[in-house]
Write a protein that binds this DNA or RNA. Structure first.
Length: 106
DNA sequence: GTCTTGACTTCGG
DNA sequence: GCCGAAGCCAAGA
């Protein structure tokens, strides 16, 4: 069990239409650094698993990882398909849509 | 073994 | 608010 396995599970727990941040996941899993989350998600595509990585954005709500998707606009399209509005490469009402793993953990 | 590179974040200016 | 530097830790060279 590597830390990125927990990153995958946490990412898949993000509800439809919600987003979270690398820092929130890193803090929830006590990874020590948010870069590990991005690195783990970067490896996710080669793990064979389908991770909704489009729901993970940086602390500003920007789609910083869209360049790592098959298409440059795939990330935004997937978010919009879930009802999330993306403006200027950022999630609209980001603070409202932000989903914190620990907050939903009972 | 060291050094560089990140889908990041925080702090100082 | 933005910009630069530092901290962070795993992987690959």
């Amino acid at each position: 069990m590597h830390f990125y396995d927990r990153v995958y599970e946490t990412t898949m727990r993000i509800p439809c239409g919600r987003v979270t941040t690398y820092g929130a996941i890193a803090d929830f899993l006590a990874l020590g650094s948010a870069r590990m989350v991005g690195w783990a998600l970067n490896q996710s595509h080669q793990s064979g698993l389908e991770i909704p990585a489009h729901r993970v954005v940086n602390r500003k709500g920007e789609l910083s990882g869209r360049h790592h998707f098959p298409g440059e606009n795939v990330m935004q399209e997937r978010l919009e398909a879930e009802g999330i509005v993306v403006v200027d490469n950022k999630v609209k009402d980001f603070e409202k849509l932000l989903w914190i793993p620990a907050d939903h953990l009972l």
